[in-house]
Amino acid sequence: MTSKISRRAFLKGSITAAGSVAATTGIARAAKSITKEKKEPLVTLLDISKCIGCEECVYACQEVNADKYADPQKPFPKMYPSRVPVEDWSDKRDVTDRLTPYNWLYIQHATGTIDGEEIELTIPRRCMHCDNPPCVKLCPWGSAKQEENGLSRIDSDICLGGSKCKKACPWDVPQRQTGVGLYLDLLPSLAGNGVMYKCDRCYNRLEEGEVPACIEVCPEDVQTIGPKSEILEKAHALAKEMNGYIYGEHENGGTNTIYVSPVPFDQLNLSIEKGKGKPHLDKVKDMMADGTNLAKAMIAAPLAGVAAAFGKFYLSGKADK
């Protein structure tokens, strides 16, 4: 615990220092230039072979996003019916081995085999920032939003904590904290249950021309951020160079997070610990594809209606003759 605090304190200082330096140097200029390219989403590339699992990204994420975290008032209002779960992470803010409302990024441990030799890999896991994010598109209240640069985030001022985004997310990424948010001002006993939290890819830092904290502090340069076409090109070149594999390019119809690994992802998926707050590395079909196909069919609906009406009109005219 002591070492954690000292490391966090150290990171806080180093992030501030790095931020002030970066503001006048290449990182800021690069981030500003990439945010200006509005037409193309920003994508992060994670080279898993470089990650040493030091968790500096995890603590940097917690430090820079601390002011976005929930500060729930207790006791929580009683919710009805009794099956409604209270999800309280406010006393477990130091948990870093899974996603929580207070930990939007964690390190997943995996093992794999290359040329008959077993190796250990560590993988930074967080929101994938899907191209067509179900969490955003299916939110019944408009609390989740997608920025033009491809990141998706949840507005904690509006979210009611219904957790639909978590159920719609193929990786179950958003995490709920009970006892905060708008629902307290509406019908706290009967509707809502807090606020959902997840990685927002440091949207506020990007707006200021800085890169996300996890990218900035990584001592191994595991992550790279840039326009989608550029990052995909890099990812494929890297995969070719290491004879490796790509995850995130086609999952759920495409995401803005691309992992490159020297070990096949289905092998990694077998070795990682999965479960609550611990996303898988399985193949994911495009969850919104059926809706998109039906939307195309919807164009034919008015045409069918018009055709049927004119058909009836024509036939009744013929019958009258």
Partner: peptide, 21 residues
Amino acid sequence: HIIHYVAAIVLIALVIYILFD
């Protein structure tokens, strides 16, 4: 979500049919 879309397709087709009829 899918049932909502399918029902919407039926409803839109019907409404347009009744309107033109």
